[in-house]
Design a protein around this nucleic acid. Sequence first.
DNA 1: TGTACATCAGTGAACGCGCGTTCACTGATGTAC
DNA 2: TGTACATCAGTGAACGCGCGTTCACTGATGTAC
Lengths: 214, 214
Amino acid sequence: MITENSENKKGTAKRKTAFSSLKAQEKRARQDVIVDAAQRVFATKPFNKVSIRDVAREAGISHASIYRYFPDQQALFVEAFLRGAKEIVQVLDDIVRNSEQGDIEKVTEEFVTYLIENDQYFRMMTHFMLDGSLSAEMVEKLNAMERLLFDEFDKLFRKMTGEGEGEVRLLSHAFFAALNGVLITFRNYPGRNREEVIRHMRRIAGIIANKFKA
Amino acid sequence: MITENSENKKGTAKRKTAFSSLKAQEKRARQDVIVDAAQRVFATKPFNKVSIRDVAREAGISHASIYRYFPDQQALFVEAFLRGAKEIVQVLDDIVRNSEQGDIEKVTEEFVTYLIENDQYFRMMTHFMLDGSLSAEMVEKLNAMERLLFDEFDKLFRKMTGEGEGEVRLLSHAFFAALNGVLITFRNYPGRNREEVIRHMRRIAGIIANKFKA
DNA sequence: TGTACATCAGTGAACGCGCGTTCACTGATGTAC
DNA sequence: TGTACATCAGTGAACGCGCGTTCACTGATGTAC
């Protein structure tokens, strides 16, 4: 609904502004629909095999329509990645904040479970980590997200040890990298069904968490 | 050179056999040249962006010629991967065999250094680990190689602890996965040159190795 | 020895495909008067 | 109120590209006689 401004002198112009702002809002809402569709597609196939046509099909629109909302493919994919990244950081932040002091094994289990169950975010992250042909801008965005993740692990390790910051940072690097490795290494574990793979990943991650307790 | 068999009765036929065997040898040698070229290309760009035409250009032949030696692209790529995998396992075996008893930090440093300096092998491995659309046959080949790598880490941990096999195997899983994660996570570390990235990876891997000493 | 033939590595051109992106058009909605 | 016009989301068709793969041909080498 259009809410009119009572102080309005140039009524038409003001209404126009409210109107355009509503239209801009609708546009953003439609962008969201497209990014949502993209996330769903990313959950089903490797990042580099997802096409504009795939996303359009999932969103139920023509592939040409995507270009009404995003200038090119990279802009859409970066948007999807950033949204996923924000969610990962937010989830980890909640987990760490709610954790018992120093219960790294609990934090690890919850974080690993989240990344397994929200596979598309992890796929995106590893895709960007491995892609050597990223623009400097993308590398910086990726790194900014990593720094936020490291910050969360810093919080956890400080809760645990109270050690100096430098040492904690390196621990965060090592621990996050190790968890990453578990999720990548056992992803295609053959001869095991999904539940068994998940159980194995959790178990191995738990072993690593235990090592980092000392 | 053709070495004639003195017991030869049907001289022509025998010579023919020697001749075909030489030709088969040449064919294999040419296959090797192509796989070598492929390895070099894999060292320069992500696995999934390498084309038959890239390999042909690197080998100095027409892209159509590849098909005289390999039935299709997958056969060539799998061949390249298996060769790289064998080399990784062999190198790790040498390192573990020559290591002081239980010097996990030394083993880690040498192994990580090798994987950084022979980047293409690591790229191939992670590509196959992340690719969800592998044939069952390829998944099994990948897993067979992983098992050989785990075997090497088993040897190392047994040297260190003398513990029972089950426990050692899980340690191998955890440790290998963690090293993998380090190599992936810091690959595109921004604002740092190659030497700094390598130093950082070695340092983080060292921290993890240290955690696994206890 | 020379000559006709077989083999086969190597190739440039072409095929069919899926991709990212652009274009010209339609049709719905709102505006001006 | 009706009518001419503007805006713009949405679209199917098309473009140009690189890809894996195939095809028809060439030319070098060896064989048969």
